[in-house]
Design a protein around this nucleic acid. Structure first.
Lengths: 345, 345
DNA sequence: ATGAAAGCGCTAACAC
DNA sequence: GTGTTAGCGCTTTCAT
């Protein structure tokens, strides 16, 4: 016969060790001094019965479950997975549990998930919103739960955020190509409807042109929605067209690594060598950069650090620590691999 | 002056709508019939005050938080991220929340996380253990919380699991190369200490040899711990040695895609063409397969489906549904890309 | 230093 | 069909 085993409660420990419930609680939480004798008795009882505090009951009283929520568009995208890893490491080391929700760029889902998480009594929320509209973030921000926004630039500087300076990063990438000797530098990107991130990188490209006294040449700038549908095949297709038209730069900056590698495939197929005939540079330093041939020169975002920084920030907020800087900008870095070289003379 | 806003409780709704607390509860949970008049009044009050039930209090009573826990080695590995995406989609659609923990193949962490999650009152646990030792899984299984193990083969068939048949999958891959005309087929792998998954794939390779009357040739089997350290560079280094020694097969199966692409780089660098001189085949169908040059032929694991299947299984268990098959084997599929061809004659 | 007891917000058994 | 109330396991105030 199976005996249905009931988990011991604080009451059981109190009885077993012959002290009051509140004394047990104080031993567990070190919240008041308890005589050595009683402390020992309590600890013994805890071990004997295998007691573990009921977090729900505690949460009901204290209003804190020691959990933080993470909302992001799609965990299967390596970028988010990497950032999440940084978040997870910090959360775990600081003894918080992680709740995860994906939204697939659906603004309705974003709001729904946010509410679900607030219902779950999370202590803080880390938010990658799909787009720039952030009414619901404001809402969370105003409810008493701390929010940190990742990788999104919001006008309201009162809302804490962690991100990189996309404009500067792309400008530096431009300069890198320029210094290599390139004077016809193109750009491949999605259209930038409502994601500031994308627009900022484009602006970086434009500033790069300006800083070096170059003119904007629409022939070597590819802005197409096709790319969003299928980064690899889309780029492939568009570059093929460009090569047929002979409207080709000596080097291309790309909104993201995937686009750069799509372009690489296309160029190679039509007989251009990379980086011999054309240099290609990505953005993000995804895993794939090491696996293309040639490996891709790119701009590295500190993904894990971004996650860790955001997690530390939100937990500091949760724990009421003094925050000096609530809008953190992280440094990027150019990772040189084999896909860039000086142009042929 | 800021007024600290207290969230309304069920009590407030009862007062506002002029009914009893239990009536409100029944309206919310549809757990008993309530007259239309009162139902309306309650709903109105709920909307007016913006009431949301306190899940902790509910969980304290019902012992269910409608959450499932996922424990896996490392979310930054695309494989796990993809499976997790499948899990997330199902959990969300069935209205469960996800709690995530990473263990980095640390068995102590696995146990700690498991306990943390049980403390969080999860309803079910999805577990990718790092290695085969599964004492703690047994423990969870025996405590009353349902557990499903992913991608790991356990002796105890009482423990529910979702995985692929690694032996069969690799055997089919072997056959694919054999049917292409290859007779010298090599294998590149980590050592298989305590991960059944790895051993099974190796066994598939061996069975492939046997089925086709070929002898095992140690010269073309690479088993090295170096590969575990750095899949890309490790493979690269080892393949270079093999090519210097001229101990080369016409085709290689690989434990994983990363190894195959490392080999691809090495072969190309020493002047072998892929697939002209040597065919290469990976395992897993990671994102990188599309980005190598040539793109990598591989064995596809249905990663998202695996996650979704496991999530459905555990939720069926949680909800007390009848389970017909608690050990689910998923189908694999060979994805042919450019890295394999018939051998030169 | 320790204990008794209130109460967090909810569900569910029971009484009407 | 509705209301009253005990109690889930804990923290915390207030006595002692």
């Amino acid at each position: 016969m199976k005996k249905s085993f009931k988990k011991p409660s604080i009451k059981d420990i109190a009885r077993e060790s012959g002290v009051a419930i509140s004394t047990v609680s104080h031993v567990i939480n070190r919240t008041k001094f308890v005589s050595e004798k009683n402390t020992k008795a309590v600890q013994k009882a805890i071990n004997k019965l295998g007691y573990r505090p009921n977090i729900l009951a505690r949460g009901l009283r204290t209003k804190s479950m020691r959990t933080i929520g993470v909302i992001l568009p799609d965990i299967s995208q390596p970028y988010f997975a990497q950032v999440l890893r940084g978040i997870e490491a910090v959360a775990r080391s600081r003894n918080y549990t992680l709740i995860l929700g994906c939204t697939f760029y659906d603004i309705y889902e974003e709001e729904r998930q946010m509410n679900t998480m607030i219902d779950q009594a999370i202590d803080g929320l880390l938010f990658f919103c799909g787009y720039d509209s952030y009414k619901h973030i404001k809402k969370a921000h105003k409810s008493n739960i701390p929010v940190v926004v990742l990788d999104r630039e919001l006008e309201d500087k009162e809302i804490p955020s962690v991100l990189i300076d996309n404009t500067l990063a792309m400008k530096k990438a431009f300069q890198y190509l320029y210094d290599l000797g390139h004077r016809k530098i193109g750009f491949i990107t999605f259209p930038f409807d409502n994601q500031t991130t994308i627009r900022r990188r484009y602006e970086g490209y434009c500033q790069g042109l300006k800083d070096n006294g170059l003119d904007y040449d629409p022939d070597i700038v590819v802005i197409d929605d096709l790319l969003r549908l299928d980064e690899l095949k889309g780029t492939y297709k568009l570059i093929k067209i460009k090569t047929e038209q002979k409207k080709i730069a000596t080097a291309y900056l790309n909104l993201a690594d995937f686009l750069a590698i799509g372009a690489m495939h296309a160029f190679k197929e039509v007989g251009y060598s990379v980086p011999g005939d054309v240099s290609l540079m990505g953005f993000n330093n995804e895993i794939i950069c090491e696996f293309s041939d040639p490996p891709l020169t790119t701009v590295k975002q500190p993904k894990k650090i971004m996650g860790a920084t955001a997690a530390d920030l939100i937990l500091d907020m949760v724990e009421g620590k003094k925050i000096e800087n609530k809008n953190i900008i992280l440094e990027t870095e150019i990772i040189v691999r084999g896909s860039t070289a000086s142009p042929k003379t």
